[in-house]
Every structure is written in structure tokens, then in C-alpha cells.
Amino acid sequence: MATSYTGNVKLGMPAVADRNWNLVLNANAGTLDTLAPVGGLCVTPAEVPSASLSVRVAAGTYRKKDGTAGTFAGAASFALPAAKVTSLYLSDAGSLLTATGGYPATACVRLATVTTGPTTVLSVADDRLVCGVVGTDVSAFLPLAGGTLADGAGVAVGTSSGAQIGTASGQKLGFWGATPIVRPGPYTQTYSTASRALAAYSPTVETTSFSGVASGQSGSPYAQVSDLNNLRSAYENLRALAENVAQVLNALINDLRSTGLLS
């Protein structure tokens, strides 16, 4: 009778009357060992049975915290301290690291917890995460291709170096459906005084025409002192407003420029 094979991994299943089952079983073992979920990043003693304080870490790939794939080349022999319980893990950058107080809280890829005796590896507990939660609300990041933040989501930034959106003025950016453009050209502020306080404005209303010469006087019409003072007051009032508006506009331009929205 002929050997049949499983539907997914194609593992061999010898028939009852077949001979040389060892060949099929050995082939199955080899197939399983090469599967990424089984053999990838697997930690084992460097020798079987263990004859040293070293472990072997298989090559494999992992998901980095930004969603991209990282690759670990493997380690044929990695020495561990004697008589310790050691957590073995990869950093987000793919460095093989250890900790004797449990896994770190920062981003890492958990591999195994290894218990050593005075001269050999006593046990290896596999800590690789095989299954992950899925769903639209899972990722703590947006994929590089873009996506949608959950309603009500907030984006926290650092308080030391901060964060940038767009690292060069030639990169294009748009808001609220507007076509992305490069950063607009610079504004020239010949008048540079700035203020963040827009003062109250009480206009001096001049609805009555100037009376001209005083009653009872003859001659060509001319403005009286009171007329000129009223005009001066209205002008000064308007001048102060225009100057204050220019100062507030300067402050606004300075603020937008400091954030990079204007150049």
C-alpha cells in the first residue's frame, strides 16, 4: 500500500502494511522542524543531552513594534550564567539579550526561560507567542500604508525631543481633505513687533459733519480745534487698533513658523 499525505503540511502517513516507516517519520520530523511556527526562533540546549551552559537559538523572523518584519540570523551557541533562571529574548532591533529578573516591560520578542545548573542546561520553557489578538482595534500603531485612528483616540508625543510630522519642507502635507502640498514659501515681516493680546476696541464714531467756522463768524469755512481733536482721536483710535492687529498677526505667523506650518 502507498503512503498518503496530510492536506495542509503534507506529512506522510504510512499505510498499515508499509515497510520502512522510519523514512516517512524522519521526513515528517524534518518538515515540522522547518516550519516557522515550530522551528523559528526556537531555543534548545546547544547539545542533546546538554553538556554545557550554552543554548542554540534558531533563525527566524518576528514582527517589530512598528509593524515591519525583523530577521534574526540565529545563534549556534549562546552562553548563559550557571545556576540561574534566565529569560532569553530579542530586542526590537533583533539583538539577543538575557535577563534574570523576568522579561523587560519595553518592546521585546520573548523566546524562552532557561534554567541552568552548575555546568549544564536543566530545562528550557518555550515562551514564544504563537497566537495573537486580531481586529480593527488591536494595533497600537497605524501601518505605514496609512489607516484610521479609533474614534476618540489621542496621540501622545514626547516632552524631551518631541515629534515631527514631515522631516523636510519639500514633503507634502494636507489637512481635512485638502490636496497635500509642500510647505508654503516664507512670509516677510518688516514690522516684526508681536503680541498675543488683542486689545479691546472702542471706535470713535463721527456721524455728524464738522461744523466748520463758529457761529457768527465770517469768512471761508475752516475746521475748528474741536473738529481737529475729534478727527485726531478717531484716527489715533484706529491707528492703535491697526497696529495691535499687526502685532497679533505677527505673533500668529511666528507661532505657525515655529511649528513648521509656515516658513
Rank of each mutant, 00 (worst) to 15 (best):
W176S: 13
A17D: 15
P37H: 00
V182G: 11
V124F: 00
N28I: 00
T188H: 11
G154M: 14
G146M: 02
G219N: 08
L249P: 00
Q189W: 06
D18V: 05
P143W: 04
P49K: 07
A36C: 05
Y187A: 07
Y5D: 12
P184M: 11
C131V: 14
A17R: 12
T207K: 03
R56H: 13
P203S: 01
G39T: 06
A240V: 03
T98R: 03
T31E: 14
Q171C: 09
T3E: 11
G39N: 08
P180K: 02
Q224H: 07
F210A: 11
F210R: 08
R183C: 02
Y187I: 04
G70M: 01
L129R: 14
G177S: 07
P81V: 13
T86A: 08
A214N: 06
S258C: 10
S91K: 09
A156K: 15
A199I: 03
K64W: 08
L249N: 13
A168N: 10
P49R: 01
S52E: 14
Q247N: 15
T193Y: 14
A2N: 05
T188Y: 00
S123H: 05
L88I: 13
G147A: 08
L144D: 07
V48F: 09
S195K: 03
L25A: 04
F175G: 09
L96D: 07
P180H: 01
P143V: 04
L122R: 04
K84I: 04
L256N: 11
T98I: 02
P186S: 00
P104H: 03
G132M: 13
A153M: 12
S195N: 05
G152R: 00
N26R: 15
A145E: 11
P37K: 12
A197I: 13
A125C: 05
Q189M: 04
T179M: 03
A93Y: 03
V38K: 07
T208Q: 10
V9P: 00
P203N: 07
P184Q: 11
G40H: 00
T61W: 05
V38R: 10
L88T: 04
A46R: 01
A2Y: 13
G70K: 09
V38L: 14
F141T: 04
P104S: 01
A251R: 03
P186H: 02
V130H: 11
R128F: 00
T44N: 11
R257Y: 05
R232G: 10
S209D: 10
A93V: 15
V134P: 09
T115Q: 05
T3P: 14
P184V: 01
V38E: 06
G117R: 05
K65R: 14
A197W: 08
I181H: 10
R239L: 14
G212A: 01
L238K: 10
D66N: 12
D255Q: 07
S226R: 15
Y201N: 00
T3N: 09
V157M: 11
L97R: 08
A214P: 03
C42L: 15
A83V: 04
P180V: 12
A112M: 07
I181R: 13
S218K: 10
T167V: 09
P14V: 00
V157W: 02
A2T: 12
S169A: 14
T115G: 01
G101Y: 04
T204E: 05
V121R: 05
